[in-house]
Amino acid sequence: MQLDFSFQQTWLHKTNPAFKFLLMLILFIGMLFIHNPNFLIIFMVGAWIMYLGYTGHSFFNLLLFASPFLLIFITSSISMILFGEGQTTWFQFGLIHVTEESFYRGLHLGMRSMIFGLLGLLFALTTRPVLLFYSLMQQFKLKPKFAYSFMAAVRILPIMLEEFQSLRHALKVRGVTYQKGVKGFYQKLQQYVIPLLAQSIRRAHRIAVAMEAKKFSGDQQRTYYYKLQIGKYDLYFTLLLISWVSITFYLTNFISIIPIDHVRSTN
């Protein structure tokens, strides 16, 4: 199957990456203090609308990227649902003890993971990593040596992949066979991981020496190829988030899908 990953630029692509990142972080910290599952349900609807409507990727691809979320939803909630504490028992079998409180708390956790998964993908799909580092340097005073190291390191990864391929072919040509079980795992580790790691450390070292010679390590005032600012799209995005959160708060007063508005056990 041929996958087409082309996409259209939306206004979210034009926001300042580092600023967008900061907003996401603030949102995360704020979410830690939300214990009302109804809030999350309404907020999640908004997250899906944002994710499906404003990344500029095709609907099919978006669903494909989002497919792990079902699993995440289950894994984040299952142990709380089955083994959480609560008073109103719904079901009990051996160690499994499902209560009303723990069930809703589990759902709450699942939704929380899903929201951050969606927002994370929204960010990843609308941000060019290179620009993220440029804006971190320009707007948030990240030292250039960290930013450029990171960008260089990202470029080394494909080379490693090639190296991995040739290593595999070389071992195949030599007719290497693997033992079964733990021994085989150890053997593979020795034959793949060690040379790959060693080679990439050597390569990183060589590149770093070259970069130091070109003064990428300098912390003094420097010029940038990409110039980024905080502009009107960032204002839009901030306003969008603020209104999104306030509308959700407002609607939570009227819409009550889950008959509980505080999921923490009171103790």
Partner: peptide, 18 residues
């Protein structure tokens, strides 16, 4: 930390992030 330290660290980190 020199640039070399940082680059090597980040390379190791990125391998792990994969």
């Amino acid at each position: 930390l020199t640039l070399t330290d940082i680059l090597v660290t980040i390379i190791i980190a990125l391998i792990f992030s994969v």
